[in-house]
Design a protein around this nucleic acid. Structure first.
Lengths: 144, 144
DNA sequence: TCAATATGGTTGCTTCGGTAACTGTCGATT
DNA sequence: AATCGACAGTTACCGAAGCAACCATATTGA
């Protein structure tokens, strides 16, 4: 009978690693701003591209529209984000960060990059192939 | 001001990949047995080690004790698992798979291994370094 | 011996996330 | 112009997961 060792099984290992990294990453912005992951993604996406719609945010950050909707509301209540009704199409809204939101973002980013750099440094020469493998798998798994 | 591209950010990419793989993996056992991930982990762990306690399962499969507790109950209701009170210590219970449970396991394993092999094959020469990097990161992130 | 503390496991509470249903608006076909 | 299907975004509902409190049993030490 075939045998399978869970601790060496790829899906399990990926899941484990991803949770651990996410959890550690929360410590990067958590203590200062207490964001959820979806809120962080919306913040990062808006900072990256400027004004855009909720739909576009969801597409870029791989989030379900309800997740986006809730994160947008949370950021709005925090006054980090404003909604503006789109002129061409009144179904969608143009979202953008406030000065406060941008400020918070600018405080988080260096810490986030440092966190990432710390991980990559720990991988040493394996970093490059890991990124390569990630890209391959991303392309191999249709994620939308 | 420093910039960060979400789609290249390591925690985001890991999370995305892990979800995609997990979701695809559900298709491996889903249609036939409709297990949840915690149930699958309990099944795999018990098949791997034979009789053991809930606590030991949780430790080996990195699951919170409530997750284990609920998965155990689900498998028990499915008659894939039986509880037996431990003799030495009546707080803990000895868990083991039934013949039905083992049979289901033996049907799933080859499909699971094939699934994993398919992924690794897609990575080609990057597979080995990926596994290496995974091991490094696992060791770098204390996960308990 | 029995009180205090620790431990295995379960459960109530709350939060989060996805599905599906809904609202309001747009565009196309008529 | 009126209707019908598509579409952006929200929300009610349900299942899943973690925290904390809890129960029963075990262990330690006075």
């Amino acid at each position: 009978m075939s045998k399978l060792a869970l601790e060496h099984f790829l899906p399990y290992r990926l899941n484990r690693l991803s949770s651990a990294v996410s959890q550690q990453f929360r410590a990067v912005y958590g203590p200062h701003h207490d964001l959820t992951v979806p809120e962080w993604r919306v913040l990062a996406t808006l900072a990256q591209f400027g004004t855009m719609t909720a739909k576009a945010i969801g597409k870029h950050s791989s989030m379900h529209k309800t997740k986006v909707s809730r994160a947008v509301r949370a950021l709005e209540e925090r006054r980090w984000l404003v909604r503006r009704e789109s002129e061409h199409d009144r179904r969608e809204e143009s979202l953008s960060l406030t000065a406060t939101g941008l400020k918070a973002y600018s405080e988080i980013v260096p810490r986030a990059l440092a966190f990432e750099a710390r991980i990559l440094a720990a991988l040493g020469p394996n970093a490059e192939p890991l990124l390569e493998a990630l890209a391959l798998m991303e392309q191999h798994f249709p994620m939308d």
